[in-house]
Amino acid sequence: MSAALEGSPALPVPAAAPSQATGYWTSVWRRLRRDPVAMGAAIVLLLFVLAAILAPYIAPADPYRSSMLRRLRPIGTAGYPLGTDELGRDMLSRLIFGARYSLLMGITPVALAFGIGGTIGIVAGFAGGRVNTAMMRTIDIFYAFPSVLLAVALSGALGAGFGNALLSLTIVFIPPIARIAESVTTQVRSRDYVEAARASGAGALTLLRVHVLGNVLGPIFVYSTSLISVSMILASGLSFLGLGVRPPEPEWGLMLNTLRTAIYVQPWVAALPGLMIFIVSISFNLLSDGLRSAMDVKQ
């Protein structure tokens, strides 16, 4: 019995909600720390984030400066550790600066969709009945289109550019997040502790705040983190199609596109942006997986 107490706050009277939250999140963190795969992924992501933030300081060269004389150098060339692209720009520097775009394109739409879709889903699930049906059937209309197609169509309609790509990706991610939020909320709402709280006379807002939100935000958050990699890949796809970031910006998807002509000349250099997309997106997926099992209270 006392072993179960280990790690939970030993303070005599924790006054309010914050201490409860720490109790839960401390134990989540403790479990996450014991998961080597999730921790590895977290470290990789941390390195990418640091690289993105510190790009101007750590990049060895200007990512935009081209040189017609030194085009498509192989990996390991003196002065160009990862070679150069089709315009003779330093690949390493471009990849480091590219992390900024890719992380932004991965995280921003998902964060926005988490806020909007999560709110829609929680409201629909908590209200139930006809409100739920009306809201969710509207959301379902978006399911008629495959997400890639929807993103391409929206970006195409809005016009190319970084901001519009973010916007169209946000719209693409609202329906799936709303769907998950709705189902989790519907589930939690029918639990006995919500009934018991209702029976003690609590109003809808108090129920939502104390008993529903704390139990639904976790699962919605975990699901959303698994969409970050999808968002990154879709964003790269948009750039590849010329609908996202425009040249000469060093965005990984765009770099993959412009380097594809060089695939027979310098296959390893041409594959590098793809490799970066792969590493970052799989790290997000592994971390989100680890987070999901760490947040499972019943373990």
Binding site: Y193, A197, S200, G214, V297
Partner: peptide, 20 residues
Amino acid sequence: SSLNPRLTVEASIAFGPGVH
């Protein structure tokens, strides 16, 4: 399922009086 997994035991019991 009749106790909120995210609340401590005393917070669960104190919830009702708090509402009132």
